[in-house]
Amino acid sequence: MSEILLFILAGFGAGVMNAVAGGGTFLTFPALVFAGIPPVSANATSAVAVFPGYLSAALGFGPEIKTLPRRNLIWAVVAGLAGGLVGGLLLLVSSNDLFSMIVPFLLFVATLAFAFQKQISAFLTTSGWQLTPWGLPGIFTVSLYGGYFNGGLGIVLLALFALWGMGNLNAMNGLKNALSFVISAISVATFAIAGIVSWPAALIMGASAIAGGFAGARIAKILPVALMRAVIILVGLTMSAVFFACLFT
């Protein structure tokens, strides 16, 4: 019962966080590891749990996505599928020990990227350092990261779009959610076929995450976004410290 309650709370909190500002993986992944699920399986299960939210968010940005060049969007989806598949396969061949060594660094970097999102975006847009818009190597690389470890994927995607020179935040968010859905779809399918998903936990978290997403839409209109961002950053730093401590003990 305590584990079920933990999954419900973590899933609901992840749904709220993703609806308000993102960062829900910082709750679901540590909760699954804390419940005794091996790190590789926990990462796969977490990806399944937060997966439905990407689709609903992408649909919410439907008008913005339709303004993007159709040909470029199709190629971006293809590159996202390829990168997500490779990343998912890399996770399958990673041992729990190896993944446990990598996770603290991924969590910490993703937390820093989330914490300094505005500064990173501003720097990239004003520095003149830009990649070729809709470049397939960049999409593939970021998708590979997302297929391997879903945490902070949205922030990394936004940074990539800023490198392209995109300035319409709504269009960037729409493309971010669409590609996140594509990347997660192929990696989730890979994890499911490989049999490394803890389905009871995934279903409980997924259902509560959907409920949290609806609640988060309402909460976002009441609570300051800065407060929610502070909570996400605190959770991310705390979990990074916990995993670093486990790594060296």
Score class of each variant (00 low, 15 high):
211 A>V: 14
231 V>G: 02
171 A>R: 07
169 L>A: 02
199 W>D: 08
211 A>P: 03
227 L>C: 07
205 M>S: 13
240 S>D: 06
229 R>I: 13
215 A>H: 10
234 L>F: 13
183 I>T: 09
155 I>R: 00
233 I>A: 10
163 L>T: 13
169 L>F: 00
164 W>R: 02
162 A>Y: 00
172 M>P: 12
230 A>M: 14
203 L>Q: 07
171 A>P: 12
219 I>P: 01
242 V>H: 08
162 A>G: 05
244 F>Q: 03
241 A>P: 06
185 A>N: 03
208 S>V: 13
178 A>H: 01
204 I>M: 12
232 I>P: 00
190 T>Y: 02
195 G>H: 05
216 G>Q: 12
158 L>N: 03
195 G>F: 07
244 F>A: 07
182 V>M: 04
224 P>Q: 04
186 I>F: 01
238 T>H: 12
197 V>W: 14
178 A>R: 00
184 S>L: 10
165 G>R: 01
177 N>L: 07
178 A>P: 01
180 S>K: 02
211 A>D: 04
210 I>M: 15
239 M>R: 04
242 V>P: 01
208 S>F: 14
191 F>Y: 15
179 L>C: 09
211 A>H: 04
196 I>Q: 05
214 F>K: 13
159 A>M: 12
207 A>M: 14
203 L>T: 08
241 A>E: 06
229 R>K: 15
190 T>R: 09
228 M>P: 00
157 L>D: 04
204 I>N: 07
218 R>N: 07
201 A>C: 09
199 W>K: 06
169 L>P: 00
166 M>T: 01
230 A>R: 14
190 T>H: 02
165 G>Y: 00
173 N>E: 10
221 K>Q: 15
173 N>S: 11
240 S>L: 06
195 G>V: 09
165 G>I: 03
225 V>Q: 15
191 F>Q: 09
240 S>I: 10
185 A>C: 09
173 N>W: 10
195 G>R: 09
192 A>S: 12
218 R>F: 14
195 G>Q: 08
222 I>K: 13
187 S>N: 10
203 L>H: 05
180 S>E: 05
165 G>T: 05
237 L>G: 00
156 V>N: 05
206 G>R: 11
201 A>I: 13
225 V>H: 11
232 I>R: 09
228 M>L: 15
217 A>P: 01
159 A>S: 15
218 R>H: 14
195 G>M: 09
179 L>H: 02
